[in-house]
Design a protein around this nucleic acid. Structure first.
Lengths: 163, 163
DNA sequence: GAAATATACTTCGACATCTAATAATACGAC
DNA sequence: GTCGTATTATTAGATGTCGAAGTATATTTC
């Protein structure tokens, strides 16, 4: 939705773009998450954990954090819930007793084996609204934007240079 | 991060794209939200409410829901917190006593008057990593994706046609 | 005008998410 | 070897988010 803000062209463009970006992910989530919940009883974060373990094997919570770009305390909560539902198991690393190694239970492996292909299918269909080239371009622009922000200094340095 | 999933080209492309989209918004939020919290003590949702009231004047909670695409129960929570901090006020519509009209308090008006320009500035700088054309293209692709999902039937219809 | 239905919001319970503070363990300097 | 520091995870407390159920008020229907 166009903001009523009266700023420079540059400002209005950036605001409109961030809104479109947010809303597209919003729509995507509204499309993808309810089926996960209804068909498999899992959330997006739980899917992310299960999928990582499915494709990469047992991982420490720290590694899961890194993969998912979420805070440690968040990972603890998500893994707690998965453990309660008997989808994953925690095990202390004998070599470093601070570390928790998380792995799929048979029940978790079975579930992700069913859920992931269905999820991929839904994602693929969702993106079929864009051509392959458009998807690549969207990906490129997103990555360019993300990288610029992740740089040390990031957008902040541009602030000082341009102002 | 490229998934290890071995699917069709189409599937891999869609998965990679959705990940890049998610991460870019993730980075953007990591860049924009902490300053809001630190400088002004408000969250993203609170900013959205305050900004809407700032630019559009008093609104009902239903109108705010629509503008923010959030659930009603969520709006109740956010407005509760804003009211507790004396940034907005609720008032029953005398013509329809079910309706709550939300409006800025002087304190809220003062705060959003300071916070919004700072926020716009940060958004604009963040997006300065992309040229104006790139921003427009990013916006176009996001909107195209979002619209396809919002359509009645949306990606579901394409499922039946293409399979 | 009373009953059924619809609308606007709130409440409740669950999960995700963050930051800050804490606990347990490992490691490095001395 | 002990002490201080770093790392890994958990806990505590706050907010956002949702869906489902509940409450209050309007509107429609008969």
């Amino acid at each position: 939705m166009p903001t009523k803000y009266k700023g420079t062209e540059q400002e209005v463009l950036a605001l409109e773009t961030v809104i479109k970006l947010s809303r597209s992910l919003n729509s995507l989530n509204a499309h993808l998450l309810p089926p996960l919940q209804k068909e498999f009883g899992i959330t997006e974060s739980q899917l992310a954990v299960l999928e990582s373990l499915h494709h990469l094997g047992p991982l420490t919570q720290g590694q899961l954090c890194q993969k998912m770009l979420k805070s440690g305390s968040n990972l603890t909560t998500v893994v707690d819930n998965l453990e309660r539902d008997d989808l994953v198991r925690r095990e202390r690393d004998p070599n470093d007793r601070r570390v928790q190694i998380v792995q799929l239970t048979p029940k978790g492996a079975e579930l992700i084996g069913r859920a992931f292909p269905r999820h991929v299918d839904r994602v693929t269909r969702a993106f079929s609204a864009l051509s392959a080239d458009e998807q690549r371009e969207l990906g490129r622009l997103c990555r360019k934007l993300g990288r610029a922000l992740a740089e040390p200094g990031g957008a902040e340095r541009r602030e000082r240079v341009s102002v």
